[in-house]
């Protein structure tokens, strides 16, 4: 379970100080699929960064099974990340001088996962696994980032608009795959998206605006993949 309590996050200093998160509290159960909706600039990415421990909040706390992130030493935090989380970034962040396969191994090696080729196949890049990121289209890069994160077998998966660069059809396929894995393996999934259709498959939908959570909706008639 992830307990998020009264998070605040500021950017900038003095007059230009900007409140990107403003007293956000929510509780996320294990194996839940959460979708975060909100206008551009509403603080979704910031929220994701803070709860995944990539950024430290200026106030409030995040705890995983009553283990608080803020109290962890650098070593604990690394171990925590290694064993628990994976991240799919809005900007992909692939390693430019490694080919697709090696980029995916970046995730797979951490879990001693020898079976990483299946993830490359699942995102439809088997024939491009020797290509380098600069030789791929934006959507293809995004799919590599997805395979890389999944290959790590995370307990919690953070996704920041994971299908933003994909066409409707491919996006749907990739997402269905992620959701199927989520159902099989039962990892927690926290996804930022602009796509209302995706939201229908989630357990809960969190709406954000100007750094605040404006509503949390239970999705009663959840569609399955």
């Amino acid at each position: 379970m992830i307990e998020i309590n009264d998070l605040t996050k500021y950017y900038g200093k003095a007059e230009s100080r900007f409140k990107a998160l403003d007293g956000v509290s929510v509780r996320i159960n294990d194996g839940e699929f959460i979708v975060i909706l909100g206008a551009s600039g509403s603080g979704k990415s910031t929220f994701l960064n803070v709860i995944s421990g990539l950024e430290t909040p200026d106030g409030g706390c995040v705890a995983y099974d009553s283990q608080e992130l803020g109290n962890m030493s650098e070593k604990d935090l690394t171990k925590f990340r290694r064993e628990n989380t994976a991240y799919i970034f809005q900007q992909y962040y692939l390693l430019p001088h490694l080919n697709v396969e090696k980029n995916v191994r970046m995730g797979a090696d951490l879990d001693n996962n020898k079976d990483y080729l299946k993830y490359i196949e699942a995102v439809g890049l088997s024939d491009k696994r020797r290509k380098f990121p600069s030789e791929l289209s934006g959507g293809e890069q995004q799919r590599v980032a997805i395979a890389r994160a999944l290959a790590k077998n995370p307990k919690v998966l953070f996704l920041d608009e994971p299908t933003g660069a994909l066409d409707e059809e491919t996006g749907r396929q990739v997402l269905d795959y992620i959701i199927r894995l989520h159902e099989e393996q039962g990892f927690t999934m926290i996804m930022v998206t602009h796509n209302g259709n995706i939201a229908e498959t989630a357990d809960r939908i969190i709406k954000m605006n100007s750094g605040k959570i404006v509503s949390v909706t239970e999705n009663t008639d959840k569609k399955t993949a």
Partner: peptide
């Protein structure tokens, strides 16, 4: 630096 930052995010230690 970028490569290192990315590895850290994935949980590789220093």
């Amino acid at each position: 630096q970028k490569n290192i930052a990315m590895m850290r995010v994935f949980g590789y230690d220093s």
